[in-house]
Design a protein around this nucleic acid. Structure first.
Lengths: 129, 129
DNA sequence: CTTGACCCTGTAGTTGCTACAGGTGTAGAT
DNA sequence: ATCTACACCTGTAGCAACTACAGGGTCAAG
């Protein structure tokens, strides 16, 4: 299959597919006489994996590790689980940060008395000290 | 004050201060004979504002708008409130996204039976289809 | 008078793509 | 056979918001 087909089959942009190849996530496929990339089902499977992992929020570095691990079928699942756990902890941290931020921002907004900028509490809150 | 003092007074890196100047967020200060930047209290106030707004998650573009608005003291506070509301909505969206992600990822992790990679449910879940 | 901490400019790197620019190949309609 | 529209190719630059050099100059203390 050509790059466009692979891309639409995985809801990926053509440029992104080429990008994944450039950074070594997707192996370079065979080429047609016209120098078009010619992909097989193994490429489709690998790209699907990459996209799914990305959708779950894994970084490309984490995806790279997961791919390496998934290539050695005999290995224990622990390393995979570890990467996922680390990622989950990271998500929890982000949610916590955003929730604290949300609270603070909504307090700032709540103080707005809709007057002029001169006595705008929102601006004031962000002033020095 | 010199750039290092301004930076440590606002918990900012020196490079970041210079960066803010380059993109026009912080006005270029006077220079000493040795070409060192010499800041006054107005710069300190402005940088504090920028940092506080950044801490609240506003983008630099939003900070730029807020700074413009805060310069016109006679104006109504509405525009300021609007920017903050938009930002709050954005934070809510992110929290929602992350929470959904968290749920899905924890489901994926929960399916791990700690065997070998060959029958690792985490890897499997991210496979094609 | 030398050492070390600070300052200067300018450029390149980070993450994960996305968007050209400027060219070649191909498939279907005429 | 040719025209048109589209998909493909490479390579480079751009986004946010910094951060980290490299390769210098300046200054205060010992």
């Amino acid at each position: 299959m050509k790059i466009g087909e692979l891309a639409s089959a995985t809801a990926t942009k053509v440029e992104t597919v080429r990008y994944y190849e450039k950074i070594g996530l997707l192996p370079p496929p065979a080429r047609t006489f016209a120098d078009y990339r010619a992909y097989g089902t193994d490429h489709l499977a690998r790209l699907s994996f990459i996209r799914r992992a990305r959708d779950l929020g894994f970084t490309l570095e984490a995806v790279r590790e997961l791919l390496t691990l998934s290539d050695d079928k005999s290995q224990s699942c622990e390393a995979v689980d570890g990467i996922a756990q680390t990622h989950l902890a990271e998500i929890d941290r982000k949610i916590g940060d955003l929730t604290a931020l949300r609270l603070e921002l909504s307090r700032v907004i709540g103080s707005c008395s809709h007057g002029t900028v001169a006595d705008c509490k929102i601006i004031e809150t962000m002033g020095p000290r």
